[in-house]
Amino acid sequence: MKKLLCLAVAFLALSSCTQDVYDKGEGPYSHMLAEMVMAHANSNKQIDFVVTDEGERLVTAPPFTTSWITTADSTYRGILYYNKGDKQADAISFNRVTVLRPQQIKDMKTDPLKVETCWVSTNGTYLNLGVRLMVGSTTDTEAKHIVAAHLLGRKVNTDGTKTIHLQFYHDQNGVPAYYSLRSYFSIPLSDLSADSVSISINTHEGTTTYAFPMTATH
């Protein structure tokens, strides 16, 4: 069994691993790819294949596991760092991506954060976010970031198209803000019937709204 190692920071309702250092030479990481994937865990809780957001199925050779893969015969959302072969992936690292299912939230909190990237998957199934949350050491075990996707509703535009509007919920919740930590989130779009999607996020520079078309099947 191949076991991948990563550094993990636990938040309430999320667990994220990050890798910010890359080998730029001709070593084992020089041709490394990084992609959002849905990963299948077999009966031994090993990832035996993944499906990329472009719809490509890759067998992981050899299969691997991490500490946060806890359920057999299930799927996990994550970023896979790997070297690619013929329909195969030689995994280097697999970092968890927290899935935030849209819901209506009564009492919103929008503590600021930094947005690094925001995009809709090629297959239209997820709205993806790469953000930096401010973190720091504390003895308070209750101090944990709380994040969610608030569903504002669906609007019919003047041209007859429909847009789903989302808002990013973020509660700093007593976590010290000493340095930033990169974290990734995916918001499922498959159950949202619309032509486009937008999400508003409060940043340190003010509220920013990102809007994207969705595939024709939504």
Rank of each mutant, 00 (worst) to 15 (best):
M1V: 06
K3P: 00
L4T: 02
L7G: 05
V9W: 10
F11P: 01
A13Q: 13
S16D: 12
S16E: 11
D20E: 15
G27W: 03
G27S: 13
M32H: 10
A34L: 10
A34S: 13
E35L: 12
E35G: 02
V37Q: 06
M38T: 11
M38P: 00
A39I: 10
A39Y: 03
T52E: 06
E56Y: 01
P63Q: 09
T65W: 04
T66A: 08
D73N: 15
G78F: 02
G85A: 13
D86R: 12
K87Q: 15
Q88E: 14
D90E: 14
I92K: 05
S93P: 00
V99E: 14
R101H: 14
Q103G: 03
M108V: 04
P112K: 08
T117H: 10
W119A: 14
T122N: 14
Y126N: 15
Y126K: 15
L127I: 12
L127V: 11
L133N: 02
M134Y: 02
M134R: 11
S137T: 14
K144H: 05
A148M: 06
H150T: 08
R154K: 14
G160M: 10
G160I: 12
T161M: 08
I164T: 12
L166A: 12
F168K: 10
H170T: 08
H170V: 06
D171Q: 08
Y179D: 13
R182M: 07
R182D: 11
D191N: 11
A194E: 09
S196G: 05
I199C: 09
F212N: 11
P213W: 01
